[in-house]
């Protein structure tokens, strides 16, 4: 089969004409999608880093309970990890072998009050009251503190923490212990 130069040019033009059609597909506008993805990614990474610092990675294993009470909307959170007491994401006092160093407590090893914790909780509560007033609300009549603790936390440490928070300076009166909801297991039939 042979073509004249004119026919050959026509075939080439036709073939070349097909190429730009593909360019439309190559230039699909994916910028909005990329923007959205990048913003979401940054938000998720930020969120993950905040919760990671709050819980100091996965060091806290919550105990399970059948309790059905929902969580309150607003309250300060204190986390007792096996290595530290963490308040609102910041490490306050170190924990070693399930207890706080005697030097951190008023009265030494036999004392209950963790001085630094009481002081920081007092300032946190003052801040909470200020925020409430700024929002045109009354400060909480019965200030509450959420406590998240590792399942192995000894009673003595929990007691010391609640005692410190209940001291007059800090003034927390109600404590909510956060647990993981237990779903009952039934034997397979």
């Amino acid at each position: 089969m042979s073509f004249s130069p004119r026919e050959a040019r026509a075939i080439i033009r036709k073939a070349v004409g097909r190429v730009p059609e593909g360019e439309e597909i190559r230039h699909l506008n994916i910028m909005p999608m990329m923007d959205m993805m990048t913003i979401l990614l940054v938000a998720f990474i930020f969120q993950a880093s905040v919760s990671a610092s709050a819980l100091t990675a996965s060091s806290v294993t919550l105990p399970r309970s059948m309790t059905e009470e929902p969580l309150p909307e607003e309250a300060s959170t204190l986390i007792i990890t096996p290595t530290a007491l963490v308040l609102e994401g910041e490490e306050i006092v170190a924990v070693r072998n399930g207890s706080v160093d005697a030097g951190e407590k008023e009265g030494g090893a036999r004392g209950y009050k963790i001085t630094k914790l009481t002081r920081i909780l007092a300032s946190l509560r003052a801040l909470e009251n200020q925020n409430a007033v700024a929002k045109g609300r009354e400060p909480a009549k019965i200030p509450e503190l959420l406590i998240i603790a590792d399942r192995t936390t000894p009673f003595r440490l929990l007691f010391d923490v609640i005692y410190s928070a209940k001291e007059k300076e800090a003034g927390y009166k109600r404590f909510r212990l956060i647990v993981q909801k237990h779903e009952p297991i039934t034997a397979a039939k």
């Binding site: 998720f44 969120q47 993950a48 919550l62 309970s65 309790t67 059905e68 009470e69 929902p70 969580l71 309150p72 959420l146 007691f159 609640i162 005692y163 209940k166 009166k173 109600r174 404590f175 909510r176 212990l177 956060i178 647990v179 993981q180 909801k181």
Partner: peptide
């Protein structure tokens, strides 16, 4: 997938 990992939380009240 890693957010909350489906953990359901509840709470118990107490005081000294």
């Amino acid at each position: 997938a890693s957010i909350s990992a489906g953990i359901l939380l509840g709470q118990l009240n107490t005081m000294l």
